[in-house]
Design a protein around this nucleic acid. Structure first.
Lengths: 344, 344
DNA sequence: TGTTAGCACTCACATACATCGAGTGCTAAA
DNA sequence: TTTAGCACTCGATGTATGTGAGTGCTAACA
């Protein structure tokens, strides 16, 4: 167990390193207000902290740098909660300045403001479509072979895709079918649509529609809506400003990782537990993340979790500030969206 | 005017530099097969070429490097057309392997393949929506206040947006209005929609619709569809591999430029004249492009120009290869889309 | 017994300097 | 007109050396 003095030293080392990005030595520490004992004492304590794995040296006679374990302890136990400045608050409020029409717009704007505020990269996931309910299905034939199918949800989200019409299908049949589908499926949640078709609607269709067989598959495919949340990035190049990324190789692997959206999406989904989550360096099991930390928060409407907002920064990230900002944005976003869904 | 021997030397210098990225000296040149005279002669010729501004030294006793003027001359007069390898051809064909359903998909895939083939960054613009014609307009009320308006074009492109309904509007009126709009506007090109409403449809609406005044503006806004082509990037990080970008500052300004999509879009639009266009280094009047060249080609369906495909690479780019690839992809894309539009 | 002053030691980093080699321009001979 | 030869330039590379911020350890101190 760490003594109070060791904790103090660990905290001051990390605070200083986050601020200046330079290894912290015993002399520097001894000059801090909070620290009342000499550099020699500090050296002894630091040797212990190093042995316990909370700090590291970059080389044998250098100052100390926090290890991942150190950051972890810092985040879990030592974080001093930070108050947002009025300016920060103003910027966050500006996300909601205009009336919300489209969810995606506000989500995108959140990402933008988050990266502005933090100078790191921000990622916003969501909002999930799967719990939305079908408002209207429409199939609009373009020519003999193809049509575009449009699905509108109760939240105003629109999905569309091209479909190939079976050669045998009649325009009147198509219309009839769309009517039946709307009658039966409006109000059903998007995730259940496909299932419901086979369970309940297939029979009705069979009795009414001539080219039933060939259409059923087409329709089922049509309603098989991708349920992955969209991912919005902002400030992708902000990481280039961070001094730890002045090495081309690091930049390359980081950028490659970000561009490889699939893996990154998976990583974010792993962090979608409610509340603030911090994963530090190699805790993120994704190559390219060695020098990065990811902080995520979830937002929701009412009880239902809608998505995730996240900040990707160097491990030497301003954790307390970023957490404060994320908490605030997530909560404001949740409030706004709860309102929005209630009025829908 | 340059002599034949000067042209030969210029060509060999640029070919060599494009290949190896190192300043080219007289000794290196004298060993090339094509060159039958001594290094001393070459030195004399190079001094002349330098005086004329076609090549430069990186420092006083270094080999020569092509200047922008040199590249320009090379591209305009010295380019030896390159044949694509079977492997390249195969990859290009793979763009069109699947049946085309959605234009965007194929455009995106083109961008992907282009960046794969070249190891540079590719950008694809388009296809433009403005010459498409309205197939169907739909307004689906979500609640008392808001509705989602959906516009489908004859090419199957779907645009949607949220609108606020005037408080006074009746559901039956809304339906009536949508019917009128569809009757009058189907087949009208997207670019002319807004105009046509005021010129021809407004009067009809006035006589049939109760809350005419409040609706008209909403409708006009709804139909004011953004006519900018979408921009698809692929291989954004490919430039990081190029040895000329081993300088952090260069990477930063390049990445910042790419992320700043607006300006880049404008730049691309400037290069939208038909056929292949090459702009070298500072010919692109956009900061961050100093060390880059942009090669663009346009694609079309029938007579109508639809968009642009482009490659962004270092000034030391494999011009002839990239041009050959772009030409091929643009032409295949045009053929495919011409077909596609004919069947629509 | 915990704390501190003092000291020898380490190592990254900066500076200075020598060396090397690919390249140049110029001159004079072929 | 071409080319061989030569002195010269300059970036790159390697080596020596000094500086300073940092360390660990020991012994004296409160």
């Amino acid at each position: 167990m760490l003594t109070d003095r060791q904790l103090l030293i660990l905290q001051v080392i990390i605070d200083d390193f986050i601020r200046y990005g330079q290894p912290v030595g015993s002399r520097t520490l001894s000059k801090k207000d909070k620290i009342t004992f000499s550099s020699a004492t500090i050296r002894n304590e630091m040797a212990d902290l190093e042995e316990l794995g909370y700090i590291e040296k970059t080389h044998i006679s250098s100052g100390r740098v926090p290890s991942e374990k150190g950051y972890r302890y810092y985040v879990d136990h030592l974080l001093s909660p930070e108050r947002l400045t009025p300016d920060d608050m103003r910027k966050i409020k500006s996300i909601f300045a205009e009336r919300i029409y489209e969810l995606e717009k506000i989500v995108q704007k959140s990402a933008q403001i988050l990266s502005d505020l933090t100078s790191y990269t921000s990622i916003v996931l969501g909002p999930a479509v799967k719990d939305n309910r079908l408002k209207r299905l429409q199939i609009i034939p373009l020519n003999r072979e193809t049509a575009v199918a449009i699905i509108v949800t109760d939240t105003g989200h629109v999905e569309n895709r091209m479909i190939t019409l079976p050669a045998s299908v009649e325009a009147s049949d198509l219309e009839k079918m769309v009517n039946i589908l709307n009658e039966r499926l409006v109000g059903v949640s998007i995730a259940e649509l496909k299932d419901k078709i086979y369970r309940e609607v297939a029979n009705v269709l069979r009795t009414h529609i001539y080219s039933y067989d060939s259409m059923l598959k087409t329709i089922a495919e049509t309603l098989d809506i991708p349920q992955e949340e969209k991912m919005f990035f902002a400030g992708k190049t902000n990481m280039l400003i961070q001094p730890e990324f002045n090495d081309i190789e690091k930049i390359r692997s980081l950028m490659a990782m970000i561009e490889q959206e699939k893996d990154f999406y998976r990583l974010l989904r792993q962090n979608s537990k409610k509340g603030i989550q911090v994963t530090i360096g190699r805790e993120n099991q994704l190559s390219g993340m060695e020098n990065c930390s990811l902080i995520t928060a979830t937002y929701s409407a009412g009880e239902e979790q809608l998505g995730t907002i996240a900040i990707l920064g160097p491990t030497r990230m301003e954790y307390s500030r970023v957490i404060a900002i994320l908490q605030r944005v997530a909560s404001d976003l949740s409030t706004a969206l709860t309102d929005w869904y209630q009025n829908s």
